[in-house]
Nucleic acid binder design. Structure first.
Lengths: 162, 162
DNA sequence: TTTATCGAAGAATAATTTTCCCCATTCAGT
DNA sequence: ACTGAATGGGGAAAATTATTCTTCGATAAA
């Protein structure tokens, strides 16, 4: 599975994927080749799923985040499948969760302003049959991390040392 | 500002930042050098803030997402500043918003399971003075995108064509 | 002790990024 | 209309980085 070295590598790559393999190796105490192979393996194993550029929301006019809580009377598989499919292609919806508790689904929606959200909202409820919707507006994004916590990974015994 | 070509480039890079510049250029109809220069500028201008590796939550034992709604009696700058500082270094908190409406703050917290969440929760309320907390558990992450919608960018007139 | 396995290291090669120099277009000023 | 500066694009060379290949050393089982 994943050992300490892999975890260190992931930690680095989660924060900055532009760092050359040789430098990553140096930081984790490995020469280029084995470090490179580990990264390859992490990609093959789909631990690393992709590498992306992260943009500044303000600079692309995506300043407002809205959390949309959805309750539905429809609880069958078919309905969800269709719902998920519609959402998948809507770029304004950046996150989508099925919840436990009162709310059935939670969306994080990104738009430039309240008017744009209203348009989005009307388009959404016209496309899908939803029982109840409630919107909560974020005034400020204080933290946004793509990096997941790695301290919960069950560690394999370290591999042999040189 | 940003023109159509820049936007196309951003669209590509938001989805996959491993594509070579020459290939990106080909896709947007540009040769390597000017395409490279545009990407450089987007990075200088901090439109692109970073490039990161995205991991599979299941593979790193970060399977449970909890949305934590926080209400506080403290509404002064100092309190928020201290709160934000504490949160910044907690890797389990991947998102943090200041909200309008009933809830003051909203956190997205990532942990392996409910027990781990309980530990996290206890640690949180011991470190910070909070009036009211409510937790909502996500059962399933149906969509998670790091890519922001780009269709709201105010476009500059296209630059001269060769 | 021998052999098989696994990871590491270093050098060679391939691919990609980055730099450098030049050309075309636009536009303001004369 | 001409000139010159500013802006953006292109091709080829140089530099850096990724990838491959081959070898070496440690470990564990027989």
């Amino acid at each position: 599975m994943i050992d300490r070295l892999d975890r260190k590598i992931l930690q680095i790559l989660q924060e900055d994927a532009t760092i050359p393999v040789a430098e990553i190796g140096r930081r984790v105490g490995l020469s280029t080749t084995p470090c490179w192979r580990r990264i390859q393996k992490l990609e093959e194993d789909r631990v690393i799923t992709k590498r992306v550029a992260v943009l500044d929301p303000k600079k692309v006019n995506a300043k407002v985040t809205v959390f949309v809580s959805i309750t539905t009377s429809q609880h069958n598989e078919e309905w969800l499948k269709r719902f998920a499919e519609v959402i998948r292609d809507v770029p304004e919806v950046v996150e989508f969760y099925r919840m436990s508790g009162q709310v059935d689904y939670l969306l994080r929606v990104v738009v430039p302003d309240i008017e744009a959200y209203d348009l989005f909202y009307k388009r959404l409820i016209s496309r899908i049959d939803i029982a109840d919707v409630s919107s909560a507006f974020a005034m400020e994004q204080i933290k946004y991390a793509t990096a997941l916590p790695l301290n919960y990974i069950p560690l394999e015994k370290d591999k042999g040392m040189a």
